[in-house]
């Protein structure tokens, strides 16, 4: 076609400019800044990274992120899988799905308030106003300060809020894939005498592997950037800090742009692995 190149430049130009300005160039520049001091004046080599890997507070953030990575990813994907399979068997599937998916629509800041309230704590004997502690009391236990007891209780409490938000996302995607599995395959196995667990283990699960892989990488990407929940619920106090909150603190509290950049580079490094996987998968799909 005549003038196709000129038209293409007009069509793609604005996007290329904006993406370069807001994503590509700043990312490269941040990598560069991570080798400089707090004001980006003098080159300091790997000092910022040495700080990240030796400072006790940052170590705690790494450890928490790792805990998030394992528990949050496993929690969302497994609950999503469980619900996808269970809901397929009941008539009120659509309603139940909406309920589980609902938290995806609201802000994580709002969800953070919801769960702060769930975890509200009053000393033993006082009237509880947080539902979780009231349930504990009803069951004959003693109320706990869920967001303060470190390191396990409060971090797991935050992660639970994260799982509450993201399970619906996993459910919707896994459920769509589950419904795509040919039903006659499952029927044939049942006719041959397989029980439901065997059908799931040998037919449904293998068919879901590609979807589960995509979901898991998506959740890993999410979990590395988790910020809002921690910011609103504990602001990283009581040993709950994660990397994204650490970066925010380095940036606005300590005003150390070298270290803040280094934290961002660590997040980028994890994302880069997924980036390579995604690009490879995209090329395979396009090459059909």
């Amino acid at each position: 076609m005549r003038g196709e190149k000129a038209w293409s430049a007009l069509f793609v130009g604005p996007a290329v400019l904006l993406v370069s300005f807001y994503l590509v160039l700043p990312t490269l520049y941040t990598v560069y800044l991570s080798f400089f001091d707090r004001n980006s004046q003098s080159f300091v080599g790997l000092d910022n990274f040495r700080y990240l890997f030796t400072n006790a507070a940052v170590q705690a953030a790494f450890r928490n992120n790792l805990l998030w990575l394992v528990v949050f990813t496993a929690g969302t994907v497994l609950l999503g899988l469980l619900l996808a399979v269970l809901l397929d068997r009941v008539r009120y599937e659509a309603v139940a799905k909406s309920i589980i998916f609902l938290p995806m629509a609201i802000s994580f800041a709002g969800a953070g308030v919801i769960w702060r309230f769930m975890y509200a704590y009053r000393p033993e004997g006082a009237e509880q106003i947080g539902l979780l502690n009231q349930i504990v009391v009803w069951l004959g236990g003693t109320p706990r300060a869920w967001l303060i007891e470190q390191p396990w209780v409060n971090n797991l409490a935050l992660i639970a809020a994260g799982v509450w938000i993201w399970t619906g996302f996993c459910l919707v995607i896994i459920s769509a894939a589950y419904k795509g599995i040919p039903k006659d395959m499952m029927e044939a196995a049942r006719v041959d005498g397989a029980n439901e667990l065997q059908v799931f283990r040998h037919i449904s699960l293998p068919s879901l592997y590609p979807t589960l892989a995509v979901i898991t990488t998506t959740m890993i990407i999410n979990v590395m950037k988790i910020f809002d929940i921690v910011y609103v619920m504990t602001n990283g106090q009581f040993g709950t800090e994660v990397l994204a909150n650490r970066m925010y603190k380095e940036m606005f509290q300590f005003r150390h742009f070298g270290r803040a950049s280094a934290v961002a580079v660590v997040l980028l490094a994890v994302a880069a692995v997924v980036m390579v996987i995604n690009i490879r998968r995209f090329r395979e799909e396009e090459g059909r």
């Binding site: 807001y22 994503l23 700043p26 990312t27 520049y29 941040t30 990598v31 800044l33 990407i221 590395m224 950037k225 994204a244 970066m247 940036m251 742009f257 803040a260 950049s261 934290v263 961002a264 580079v265 997040l267 980028l268 994302a271 980036m275």
Partner: peptide, 8 residues
């Protein structure tokens, strides 16, 4: 790409 790498 995490947005964090673009903020500064």
């Amino acid at each position: 790409v995490p947005l964090q790498t673009t903020f500064i």
